[in-house]
Amino acid sequence: MVKSELVRVLNEKLPELRESDVELAVNCMLEQMIAALAIGERIEVRGFGSFSVRQRPPRLARNPKTGETVNLPAKTAVHFKPGKEIRDRVDSTRDQSRITD
């Protein structure tokens, strides 16, 4: 779901709120999540999942086109672990989706 789609859906569920207010609330929430992750905090959204920051060490990789060895620097990555509810819902619709193994 794209952010504008999220705003539209929330606005339909909460028609008493102006679309601009819903958009402001969504943007504030996302900004706070980004700020928390930027300082290394873990975020948990019950029933949805958790976000955390992981450090990846430097490593040697290979360019698949040329076969040349490349040094990749250390980096910080955001990790998402889905909660049980979201895993179960996604699993239950697997046969209806275009996802293949």
Rank of each mutant, 00 (worst) to 15 (best):
M1N: 15
M1C: 12
V2W: 14
E5L: 05
V7H: 07
R8D: 15
R8I: 15
V9L: 09
L10H: 11
L10Q: 02
N11M: 05
E12Y: 13
E12W: 03
E12I: 06
E12M: 02
L14M: 04
L14R: 14
P15C: 00
E16G: 14
L17V: 06
L17M: 07
R18M: 09
R18W: 05
E19W: 14
S20T: 14
D21Q: 03
D21K: 00
E23K: 13
E23T: 07
L24I: 08
L24V: 01
A25T: 12
C28R: 07
C28V: 08
L30P: 11
Q32M: 10
Q32Y: 00
I34G: 10
I34A: 09
I34E: 12
A35H: 06
A36H: 01
A36Y: 05
L37S: 00
L37W: 04
A38H: 06
A38N: 12
I39M: 06
G40M: 03
E41A: 08
R42F: 06
R42I: 12
I43M: 04
E44I: 04
E44A: 08
R46Y: 15
R46E: 02
R46W: 05
R46C: 05
G47M: 08
G49I: 05
S50T: 01
S50W: 11
S50D: 07
V53F: 15
V53Q: 00
V53W: 05
R54M: 04
Q55P: 06
Q55W: 14
Q55H: 12
R56I: 01
P57R: 12
P58F: 02
P58M: 02
R59E: 01
L60T: 15
L60Q: 14
L60I: 10
A61H: 00
N63P: 02
P64I: 06
T66V: 09
G67N: 01
G67K: 10
T69A: 14
N71G: 11
P73L: 11
A74Y: 06
A74Q: 04
A74M: 02
K75I: 04
K75A: 11
K75P: 09
K75C: 08
T76H: 00
A77H: 15
V78L: 03
F80G: 13
K81T: 10
K84T: 12
E85K: 00
E85T: 01
E85P: 01
E85Q: 09
I86A: 00
R87D: 02
D88M: 07
R89A: 04
R89Q: 02
R89N: 14
R89K: 06
R89L: 00
V90G: 00
V90D: 01
V90I: 13
D91E: 08
D91A: 10
D91Q: 05
D91V: 01
S92Y: 01
S92M: 12
T93E: 07
R94M: 10
D95G: 15
D95Y: 13
Q96I: 06
Q96A: 11
Q96E: 11
Q96V: 02
R98W: 07
R98N: 13
I99R: 07
T100N: 08
T100G: 14
D101G: 14
